[in-house]
Design a protein around this nucleic acid. Structure first.
Length: 844
RNA sequence: GCGGGCGUGGCGGAAUCGGUAGACGCUGGAGACUUAAAAUCUUCUGCCCUUGGCGUGCGGGUUCGAGUCCCGCCGCCCGCACCA
């Protein structure tokens, strides 16, 4: 008698068994090949959301699949538990950030468990535990001792709302990435990690990451931003000089002006003496920073009256260049000064047009070589150097080299005047944060000894618990006792560094700690190396730059200090799409939650709602769907199945009622099939069904390939097809085997149902530990093939023929077809193309 | 502006190499079962002027053959932001 699959009962039952048996605890000493599957660990914000469910379901299917294919799988979970929301909660609700965080962790852990993820909870960690961040402090000091950490007084991005310093990466369009407040500049003494020391390695390393999305590699490449060129000095007419950087030294003879940034020392000096210049400098600072503003902003300049002597002026007679202060030159890139070549740079072209400066062609564009430019936009492409004295006739690459060679030539009169150099967009990583809820920076400031690292035996430097958040600012900085300590070096009164580390530091090595967590140090090298690198890392594309770059840096820094032999932490990276939902608005413009809407009307008022576009689930647009009641209603397997169906994992998945109900129906359908087959008492032991057997083997191969390729939608489609075929198949021994195999193939996706079926079949043991079915390659080969018959490339007939039939016989069969005879109208074909076992094209 | 991606039925999407476009799912139609409904099952579901013709954003091209390759457009999405 067919029964319904009781998901809630089965979920709880099997989750308890997996838990008690520690089924998914990874064994460091296993003889099986090791594999490491990791999803980006969550920030414990309160509850899990659909994005988490999708992310962890994907990783889980891969992890379970790899278990079945004979791997020892490390699939851990933990908590990225430091960060500002905890302090915000403390300020708003008066709870301690630690209490708030730990409560959220408890809630979210329970929610994750209800989804039946094959996670190794024995390795769970939270970055806010001293047992984690204490080791981070030790690593920080290791970096410090090997010169990877330094302190610098610098202008920082100050977020006036969050009262903290932000990294450049955390400033978006001049606003704080979390608060959205306009960022101010402040001078503070900050700790920096020397990520730029690894700039070349981090850039070159991207080339080895062939299992990363091209998009992410490109984003990192652009972020690192390597530019090679010439840095040199212009002598100025007032006896001073200005240093400029250019990637186009080849265009030197096309220069018609020099421009410095508004906050360049030269501009500042001039502004101090000249009110008009001061006004212009002020005007530059007013400029907006948003995308639209920058795009439309006019190129503006102020002629300083100074001139710069062309480096080749003496030998070629090239004239002096006027020096401008310009709004499009940035102080924090290169040297804050440039020379302008209007013919070959669009900004310079715009500028020269506005201020009537010469526009002189020095690189040919096709057959255009005349010095009079006469074009409507700059030519930035390749070409041959023209109107450039000794460079004439060279290509751009050679000309660059030649100019740099001449600049560096120390034997010329006056010696060298410039050098080839590389400029990076990437900046050192400022890690100091004026916050409480983070890893304390383990340094003590002593009036006599200066910066003193906290001795190793005094680690961890624990956060004090007795803090309040009733006044803005950092509670550590005003803590009466925690802050004041004796200098470890001289014993005099000293103070702790009251800043904490950027939370991106915490997430830069957690994957190593998962692999190995001894008490007395950050990780055991041998054990960590036995698991790492992470074979498959899965997470949101929003971490494409910051987190992934910092983690890559941290890993290289660890190698630099000799703690691990690993360059790249993540071999495979997959960035999954978002979970989206329709948005709804009431007539008065309020966003409405999906729960408040039915049949196009607001339930409470009955008034019609506007259905907006499908967008990422977000609290602000109220289009979120809470996973917990969904799991209550449909069970974990249906939710998991829906997360994997239809949409390719890298694309967005639209949440819909129909979708989850369809998934639920499939779970029930699968159960009916399994239950009916496995619980029928007298199974037929005879009866072949070769077609079904072949489909089972084909599906096994297809699902394996799809799961390994993270193409879950394809695996799902294949499982649907197999299910339908089995349903239609008559009873046979083959059919029973097919059902058993179907259960195994779907086990990674619907593990609770699969365990239930496994038990029902009396297989013994857990299906979580069962082996993936083997594929008989002979079963993948058909002895008959369907051959398409085309006339002039149009399909006219299909024939079922023996596989491997000789060309002539295929052709003869094609010509014998009634439909083909009609299509050819009695005429013999002029040409016949035969693709063996696939297609015949008759050209009339 | 620069860089990248995408564009296939009513919808999500398949189509590994240039070789039968639309697998699989959703939605919808018809039918069976039922007193009835739900559930379930069967079946149909790209478009049209249906012995056939047209169809993968648009216009060209290469080819016996193009969703797939090339050239030129259009649209949408993502990232970066005056990077010298």
């Amino acid at each position: 008698m067919a029964s319904r699959f009781n998901a809630l009962k089965a979920d709880a039952h099997w989750q308890k068994i997996w838990d008690e048996a520690r089924t998914f605890a990874a064994d460091d000493h296993s003889a099986r090949p090791k594999t490491y599957v990791l999803e980006m660990f969550p920030y414990p914000s309160g509850k899990i959301h659909m994005g988490h469910v999708r992310n962890y379901t994907m990783g889980d299917v891969l992890a379970r699949h790899r278990r079945m294919t004979g791997h020892e799988v490390l699939h851990p979970m933990g908590w990225d538990a430091f960060g500002m929301p905890a302090e915000n909660a403390a300020m708003e609700k008066g709870v301690h950030p630690g209490a708030w965080t730990r409560q959220n962790i408890a809630t979210m852990k329970a929610q994750l468990k209800r989804l039946g993820f094959a996670l190794d909870w024995t390795r769970e960690l939270a970055t806010c535990d001293a047992s984690y961040y204490g080791h981070e402090q030790a690593l920080f000091l290791d970096f410090y001792r090997s010169g990877l950490v330094y302190r610098k007084e610098s202008a920082v991005n100050w977020d006036p709302v969050d009262m903290t310093v932000l990294a450049n990466e955390q400033v978006i369009d001049g606003r704080g990435w979390r608060s959205g407040a306009l960022v101010e500049k402040r001078k503070l003494s900050q700790w920096f990690l020397k990520i730029t020391q690894f700039a070349d390695e981090l850039l070159d390393g991207l080339g080895t990451l062939d299992q990363w999305p091209d998009k992410v590699r490109l984003m990192q490449e652009n972020w690192i931003g390597k530019s090679q060129g010439l840095q040199f000095r212009f002598a100025l007419s007032d006896g001073g000089s200005v240093e400029v950087f250019t990637t186009r030294p080849d265009t030197m003879f096309g220069a018609s002006f020099v421009a410095v940034a508004a906050d360049h020392p030269i501009a500042q000096a001039i502004a101090a003496a000249n009110p008009a210049a001061a006004a212009f400098v002020e005007q530059c600072k007013q400029g907006g920073t948003t995308a639209a503003e920058l795009e439309t902003q006019e190129k503006l300049g102020f002629d300083t009256g100074l001139t710069a002597a062309h480096p080749f002026g003496q030998e070629t007679g090239a004239g002096d260049l006027p020096v401008f202060i310009a709004n499009f030159v940035l102080m924090d890139y290169g040297t804050g000064a440039v020379f302008g070549v209007p013919a070959h740079d669009q900004r310079d072209f715009d500028f020269a047009t506005k201020y009537a400066l010469p526009i002189r062609r020095v690189v040919s564009e096709g057959d255009k070589t005349a010095p009079d430019f006469g074009e409507s936009e700059a030519w930035t492409g390749a070409g041959t150097l023209v109107n450039s004295h000794f460079l004439d006739g060279m290509d751009v690459v050679d000309a660059k080299r030649e100019v740099i060679r001449r600049a560096e030539d120390a034997t010329q009169p006056g010696g060298s005047w410039g050098h080839g150099t590389t400029v990076w967009r990437l900046r050192d990583w400022g890690v100091s944060r004026q916050r409480y809820w983070g890893t304390p920076i383990p340094i003590i400031h002593c009036a006599t000894c200066g910066e003193v690292p906290v001795p190793r035996e005094q680690l961890p430097v624990e956060l004090p618990e007795d803090v309040t958040f009733d006044i803005p600012g950092n509670p550590l900085d005003r803590h009466p006792t925690w802050k004041h300590v004796a200098c470890p070096s001289c014993g005099a009164a000293a103070v702790r560094d009251t800043d904490t580390l950027d939370t991106f530091a915490d997430s830069s090595w957690y994957f190593i700690r998962f692999a190995s967590q001894p008490e007395d140090r950050a990780f055991d090298r041998a054990v960590a190396e036995s698991w790492l690198p992470v074979g498959q890392y899965i997470g949101g594309v929003e971490h494409a730059i910051l987190h992934l770059l910092y983690a890559r840096f941290w890993t290289r820094a660890l190698r630099h200090v000799g703690l691990i032999d690993l360059a790249e932490p993540f071999t495979g990276l997959f960035t999954q799409g978002m979970v989206t939902h329709e948005t709804y608005k009431a007539a008065d413009g309020r966003w409405l939650s999906p729960e408040d809407v039915r049949d196009g009307k607001e339930i409470a008022s009955g008034s019609p709602v506007t259905v907006g576009r499908v967008e990422k689930m977000s609290k602000s647009k109220k289009n979120t769907v809470d996973p917990e009641p969904i799991v209550d209603q449909y069970g974990a397997d249906a939710v998991r199945w829906f997360m994997l169906s239809d949409s390719p994992p890298e694309r967005d998945l639209e949440w819909s009622e129909n979708g989850i109900e369809g998934a639920w129906r499939f779970v029930q359908r699968l159960w009916r099939l399994v239950d009916a087959e496995l619980s029928s008492e007298a199974a037929p032991v005879t009866g072949d069904d070769i077609a079904l057997r072949k489909l089972v083997h084909r599906t096994t191969a297809a699902v394996h390939a799809a799961v390994e390729g993270l193409q879950f939608n394809k695996a799902v489609a294949a499982l649907y097809a197999l299910t339908s075929a089995i349903e239609k198949a008559p009873a046979s021994a083959e059919r029973r085997t097919a059902v058993r195999t179907l259960v195994l193939l779907s086990a990674p996706m619907v593990p609770h149902l699969a365990e239930e079926a496994w038990a029902l079949a009396g297989e013994g043991g857990l299906i979580a530990n069962a082996a993936w079915p083997t594929v008989d390659d002979a079963m993948l080969i058909d002895d008959e093939v369907t051959v398409a018959i085309q006339v002039n490339g149009k399909l006219r007939d299909t024939l079922t023929l023996a596989k491997g039939l000789p060309r002539e016989e295929v052709e003869a069969a094609a010509l014998a077809s009634e439909k083909i005879v009609r299509a050819l109208d009695g005429k013999p074909p002029r040409k016949v193309i035969v693709v063996p076992d696939r297609l015949v094209n008759l050209v009339a």
